Amino acid sequence: MDFLALADFNLVARHGGFGRAARESGRPKATLSRRVADLESELGLRLLERGARTLKLTEEGRALYERTSVLLTEIDETAAEIASGGQAPRGRLRVSAPLLFSQAAMGKLAARFALKHGEVQLEVTTEDRAVDMVEEGYDVVIRVNPDPDAQLVGRIFLRDRLVVVASPTLARPAGKAPVPAVLREGGTGDETVTWEMRSRSGTKRIAAKPVLRLSSLFMVRDAARAGVGAARLPLSLVTHDLRAGKLTLWGDVEGPEIALWALYPSRRLLSARVSAFLDFLKEAFPTGSPEELASFID
């Protein structure tokens, strides 16, 4: 297979067309078109569907792009590192992180990483959905309790847990009477929900009657501070308030712990910039405790 033709095909696929690829690379459009056609002829496959105004990958073209784009990037990076005489991290690093972690810590973390690794162009996207790392071009994805994925590997760098908290002005539950609650979850109406929690006196179930439903855990925390109702929140988010007496701890929520993972494609050689970012997370959270995350929260 012609390596240069494969590289030109990846260039066109990445930019979504011959014209844009030519402008971005400074290569003649006709040259790119000819090389891609030569590659199609060599493989006996159509890789691109060419319309009057649009161009898109065929199923075979998409498979070829997904399997070779990462390898070509690694080859370019390796050549650059060898030429520079070192393994200093450099280049673009795209990270996807969940909303709460981003709001709590990612701004400060990104700034510290940029100051430490000035040759890395860090880009952080905040979203809770499951992104396609290869298709969307992410180097690292941070996720909470992710489902197993054979295509990804990673490590836990932070652990947290849910607790039930309330303002000191709100009476603790007595008997079966429901307590007012602030929720961050779907649903409508004021139907009562059941919370199961552990405290010093043992496991207990309480009835929680929603009085507010909010889309942000920071909003839920602020409402709980104001005494509107009890709330289930990550310990890291309320550590300062518990110490200051703005909130009181009713108990730990029964259920699995919250584990934050840093994930990356298993088939990809670990680049210097990805390795640097993973090491940076380890330095920022050496024990991975909720209190370490709380130190980033104002």
Rank of each mutant, 00 (worst) to 15 (best):
F218N: 06
A13K: 02
L100C: 06
L212V: 01
I142N: 00
E81L: 13
A22R: 04
R62G: 12
L217P: 01
G137P: 06
V134I: 15
T239L: 15
P290G: 09
R225Q: 10
S295N: 09
P234Y: 07
F285V: 11
E123A: 12
L170R: 02
R213N: 03
T31H: 05
I258P: 00
V193P: 00
D128G: 13
S199E: 08
E257M: 13
A294N: 12
E123D: 14
A208Q: 04
R46V: 11
A52R: 15
D128S: 07
F101Y: 03
H117D: 03
L32I: 04
E135V: 15
L93S: 00
R90M: 10
D147A: 15
R213W: 02
R143T: 12
L263C: 04
V164D: 01
A21R: 01
L247Q: 03
T73I: 14
V164L: 11
R27G: 05
A30M: 07
D160M: 02
R268A: 11
D190T: 08
E24N: 12
L233M: 06
G227A: 08
R232N: 08
G86L: 05
A21M: 00
P265V: 03
A114H: 08
A208V: 06
L237K: 01
E66F: 14
M219Y: 08
A223M: 08
V134Y: 08
S96N: 05
A97I: 00
R20A: 10
E283S: 13
T78M: 10
L242Y: 10
P256H: 13
F3A: 15
A104R: 00
P265F: 04
E60G: 13
L71T: 15
G107C: 06
A5P: 09
L48I: 12
L237G: 03
V164Q: 05
E191A: 05
M197K: 04
A171M: 08
L269S: 09
L100T: 02
R112L: 15
D190G: 02
A130Q: 15
A276Q: 03
G202Y: 03
R161L: 11
S84V: 01
L39S: 02
G137I: 08
R112F: 04
E74M: 13
L278F: 01
S295V: 15
P168A: 05
A208W: 06
I206E: 00
A88I: 05
E49Q: 15
R53E: 12
L158Q: 08
T194M: 06
T239F: 13
T126G: 09
S201N: 08
E74N: 13
K246N: 14
L170C: 04
R184N: 10
A21I: 03
G26H: 06
E119K: 14
D252C: 06
D147L: 15
M1W: 14
L170E: 02
S266M: 10
S41D: 14
A130P: 10
P234H: 05
A276C: 07
S69A: 15
A104N: 01
M197D: 04
D298Q: 14
R46I: 11
L152S: 10
G91A: 05
S102D: 03
G189Q: 02
L64Q: 11
R46A: 14
A130I: 15
G187C: 05
G186Q: 04
